[in-house]
Amino acid sequence: MELLPQALIDGILLGGIYITIAIGFSLVYGVMHIIDFAVGEWIMLGAFLGLYLNKWTGLDPFLLLPLVFVVFGLIGYLLQPVIHRVISGRQGNPLLMGLVFTFGLALMFRGIALTGFGFYSHSIPSTFSDKSFFYEQGTFFMTVSGIRLAGLIYALVITVALHWLLKKTNFGLGVRALAQNRDAAALMGVNGKRTSSYVYGIYVGISAMTGVLIGSILSVSAQMGPDYTIVAFFVVVLAGMGHLAGVPWAAFLLGLVQSFFLIYLDPGLTMLAVFAILFTILLVSPRGLFAKGV
C-alpha cells in the first residue's frame, strides 16, 4: 500500500496532460461534427517541431510553446476549408467523409514523419526535467517530478483559458451558438466558416503544444500518434461527445487507470482495460459518464 499515494499522484499528473489532448478534440466535434483521426499525428508533428526548435535555439520547450501554437494554429486554420469542403459535399454522410479524410491525413503524416525522422525516439530536455519534489513521512512517501507538475500546470492554464474564451468572449458565444444550431447561428450573424477555421486552428495549435510537452515529459517518436489518438477517443467517449465540462474528469480517470496498471498490474494489459472501460460505458451509459454527450 506504500505505493498508493504515488500511483494517485502519477495518475493525476498524467491525466492533466490528457485533458489538453482531448479538450480541443471534443471542441472540434461539438462545433464541426468531425472526429479528427489525425489528433495523435498533430501531437507528434508538434513534438518534432519542438524538438528541432529546441536543438536549434537551445531554448526551454516551455518558452517555445507560443511559437509552436502559432505555426500549427496557422496550419489548422488553412486546412479547415478543405475539411469543410469534404463534410459539406454532395456525398450524403458528412461524418463518414470527415472520418475518412482525417484518417487519410493521419496515415500520410505518419508516413512522412517516419521517412523524415526515422524510428528512433527522442526527448526534449527542459530545465524542469531533473527537478523533483520528494515527500516522506514514516512509510508514506511520494515523488513528484518537476516536469510533470509543470505539465499539469500548463494543462490547467489551457483549460482555464479555453473556458474563458468560450464563456466570456463574443467569439466564444459564436462558437457555442454554432455548436447548438448552425443555421440559427448563421442567421444571428455568426460567420460559420471563419469561426470553424479559428476553432480548428486553436485545436491543432493546442494539440501541437501538448505534443511538445509530451516530448519533454515522455518521449518523441514518429510512431507515437495512435497512442494519443486512442487517449483522445477514450476521454471524449467517457466524457460524452462534445461535452467539454466532462473532459477533465474523464482524463483524470484515464490517467489513474494507467498509473495503477503500471504500478500494480501488467502495463501490457492497459489497452485491454481501457477497452473494457470504453465498452462498459458504451453499454451502460452511451452518452458518457455524465450522460450529457451528443
Binding site: Y29, I230, V237, D266, G268, L269, M271, V274, L283
Partner: peptide, 28 residues
C-alpha cells in the same frame, strides 16, 4: 451490440479500440 445503437462516431472509435485491444491480447 453496444456500439451500433449509437451514432457512427462511436462505432468508428470503438472498433478501432477493439482492433488495438485484440492486437494487445494476441501479444500477451
Amino acid at each position: 451490440f453496444p456500439t451500433l445503437r449509437l451514432r457512427g462516431a462511436y462505432f468508428a472509435i470503438a472498433t478501432w479500440a477493439l482492433s488495438l485491444a485484440i492486437q494487445q491480447l494476441a501479444l500477451i
